[in-house]
Design a protein around this nucleic acid. Structure first.
Lengths: 347, 347
DNA sequence: CTGTTAGCGCATTCAA
DNA sequence: TTGAATGCGCTAACAG
């Protein structure tokens, strides 16, 4: 395998010139640069990552810690990762995933101390996440996807749940809906102070109250079965609810099934709108789910920008880090029935 | 950050002694080893990965290439990854995921040539996968999860679909089922010669024929909707089918819904059994899905063993590389109805 | 704009 | 069983 020395010889320049040409961090005449590049192509040369990291004290690797048995490396996370990979690449970094429980602090620590990555992206942060303080103690550059309650001096990006909920309720009220349910993450997640669950609930309760809507909050496991149960619970509690906001994929499927079995039509009898939902998911149902689409790729990009700034010790506070979901037309939203929705009964 | 030199000084030994103590690849007296280890603990020392890789010409990193928008980093893959991570760790390797389309050959190439990993794990291999030949040309150590049709000189591990299908049909026939449907992956996957889809179909058709069963093969996209459609198709084609074998998660949900709507009871009217299904999935339905559980962790471990052997140029051909799924009791299997299953009609 | 050179931190060969 | 010395391939001063 060719080394930089070989390239230097082939191009008739010094070793350092090759290095500078490759890193373009000092002026190089176009002529010599061309000769270097030609030699690089000729020899099929690629920098050795280990040597580069050793000499430069920088691995040029960023790590995303993601439990393999996470709530699913689902479409939404996939979109996020894709955006992050692209952004990292544009900045000369390689993004890799460290597939173990992120609260396996020992492992994260060890990899970080080996200097296998220059910085770490942290997902599924809870409001009082202990792991963040550990990272801070270890002086590891990191960016959170999501937010701890305490944000001082911490780098983060997150979905703007408040704004997203506002737009969602705007659209529902514009259609005449006044009784709305929220199919939220499970109580387990709420108890763990999982940011999206807590923020969505709070925004929902707060904003429905302020708008004088009837808002019914329903935590629910993310399974089709739990979704079915939640549906029964929702309309058992209030038969006149005409719209549901949902955060889950599988639970939403269950809810839809229940409605089908109960002969309630979507969207004529009940409107459904997803929140922070991936487009890959919305397309799966019929009619396609109307949703506030999760800003996956944007979040990924922004997270990488943040992280690189932290690594370079160049904090920029002018970047928008709270990114709203955007409305995506589907077929599951309709005006509320005048009066009560017809409630079909079935033997 | 402490270096090996610091440890040597603290322990009162030479630098090389520390190295040997850490790698235990030459005799060390217990006394000096203890002193070294004590110094290591004291200083909180960790080997620098870059320096180690540069000097040792080995990164001690293994890479799993996994598209972020894959058919879902689902529970099954998660289990596989968990097994692989554990096995890699036991052998002194770190397993990382490279999250980009694995047929983005250029990227894989580049990372490999930077020597960012010593070997690569390849998932979702098709029968005539072009990417494998590319890896061979580049002399990159790799192991396939799945199999190309041509196997000569290639390292692989795979699920034993034939044996799994045999046991599945054994169990169904023992319960008196003679008319069985297979809910397979989509035609797109079959056209792409995706191994699991092709092997399952072939095993199903072959073995049902040999057993003189009626076997109906139904390719199907992995969405709840497609599953519903497939169910309609199955019983439209043959109302007397009493058992379904399924490969999908979401499609199975759709199929179950359809049965619910049609007032067919599971398992009394229709038996359902999953193939290569993760236990995390089976638990989600009610009654829990009876299934042939995917040997995720075993596959992961075995794949790592294989890959390390390839890297060490120590091919072992005595290891079982074809791993069957194992039966997991659930609540979705019952004896076939004597005569026709009652076919309920609904207005 | 380009060349020379000193390490980066460790594995490993050669001596003892 | 241990130590000394070399070099892995590259970055980043320093010097011109």
């Amino acid at each position: 395998m060719a080394t930089m020395k070989d390239v230097a010889k082939a191009a008739g320049v010094s070793l350092s010139t090759v290095s500078y040409a490759l890193n373009s961090n000092r002026p190089i005449s176009p002529a010599t640069r061309d000769r270097v590049m030609a030699a690089v192509d000729d020899l099929g040369y690629t920098r050795n990552a280990a040597a580069r990291a050793l000499a430069g004290r920088r691995s040029h690797v960023l790590a995303l810690v993601l439990p393999p048995t996470s709530t699913s490396f689902s479409a939404t996370i996939g979109q996020f990762v894709a955006g992050a990979v692209a952004a990292a690449e544009e900045h000369g970094y390689t993004l890799v995933i460290w597939p173990f429980a992120w609260d396996d602090q020992a492992k994260v620590d060890q990899l970080v101390r080996q200097k296998l990555a220059d910085g770490v992206l942290v997902m599924e942060v809870t409001l009082d996440d202990q792991r963040i303080t550990a990272l801070e103690r270890a002086h590891v550059p990191f960016t959170m996807i999501g937010r701890t309650a305490e944000l001082a001096g911490r780098s983060w990006v997150d979905i703007d749940f408040e704004a997203t909920m506002a737009e969602t309720l705007d659209r529902l009220t514009a259609l005449g809906h006044t009784r709305v349910a929220l199919l939220n993450h499970s109580n387990r997640m709420l108890d763990a102070r999982y940011g999206p669950a807590v923020r969505t609930r709070d925004a929902f309760l707060d904003q429905t109250a302020r708008r004088r809507l009837v808002g019914y909050h329903t935590p629910c496991d993310d399974t089709a079965l739990a979704g079915r149960g939640a549906a029964a619970q929702i309309w058992g509690h209030d038969p006149d609810i005409t719209a549901v906001i949902t955060l889950h994929e599988l639970a939403a499927i269950g809810l839809v099934n229940w409605l089908t079995v109960e002969d309630r039509a979507i969207p004529d009898d009940v409107s459904v709108i997803g929140i922070a939902t991936s487009p890959l998911i919305t397309a799966l149902s019929v009619p396609p789910l109307t949703a506030m689409r999760a800003p996956g790729p944007d979040l990924g990009r922004t997270a990488i920008y943040e992280l690189i700034d932290v690594i370079d010790a160049e904090p920029r506070r002018d970047r928008p880090r709270l990114i709203p979901c955007t409305y995506t037309e589907g077929g599951t939203l309709a005006p509320a029935q005048p009066g009560h929705p017809a409630r079909k009964v079935r033997s």
